[in-house]
Amino acid sequence: MLHHPLRPEDGRRRLKVERGATAVEYGLVLAFIAAMIVGTITALGLTLGESFGDFVTAWGAA
């Protein structure tokens, strides 16, 4: 069987594969962004907790 480069079936198949790959890539980007948000909120929370603790200690000593 001869392979014709412009068969519509090949284009549809390639499009499905590319859609699947694109979905995986978007999923990885979303997971990375979520991890960065969680890390930032955790670090910010720890810093604010320490600052609030220092404030409360200084307020109680005054």
Rank of each mutant, 00 (worst) to 15 (best):
G45Y: 03
S51C: 05
V17D: 07
T22N: 12
I37W: 01
D54P: 02
A58P: 00
G39A: 03
A23E: 06
A23T: 07
V38M: 09
K16Y: 06
A34L: 15
I41E: 05
R19Q: 14
A35P: 01
L2E: 13
G49L: 00
D10M: 10
V38Q: 07
G53M: 01
T40W: 06
A34D: 03
V24D: 08
A21W: 04
A35V: 11
A62R: 07
E50K: 08
V24H: 08
L30Y: 07
A35K: 00
T57H: 12
L6G: 10
T47R: 11
L2N: 08
A61Q: 10
V17S: 06
L6Q: 11
L28Q: 14
A43V: 05
E50G: 04
A21F: 06
G45V: 02
R7Q: 14
T47M: 13
R14I: 15
A43P: 01
D54R: 12
I41C: 07
I37S: 05
F55P: 00
R7S: 14
L28I: 08
L46K: 01
M36H: 04
L15I: 06
K16F: 06
T42R: 02
L44F: 09
F32M: 13
P5Q: 04
L48P: 00
G27L: 01
L30K: 13
A35W: 11
A58H: 02
S51D: 07
G60K: 04
Y26H: 13
A58G: 00
G27E: 02
A62S: 14
P5I: 02
A35L: 03
D54H: 11
G20C: 12
P5W: 01
L48S: 02
T42M: 06
G60C: 11
G45P: 00
A62I: 06
A21Y: 05
G60N: 10
G27D: 01
F55E: 02
G20D: 01
F32S: 05
S51Y: 06
L6P: 04
T47A: 15
I33A: 11
V56T: 11
E25D: 07
L15W: 09
R12D: 14
G11P: 05
I41S: 04
R12F: 13
A58Q: 01
L44G: 09
R14A: 15
Y26K: 09
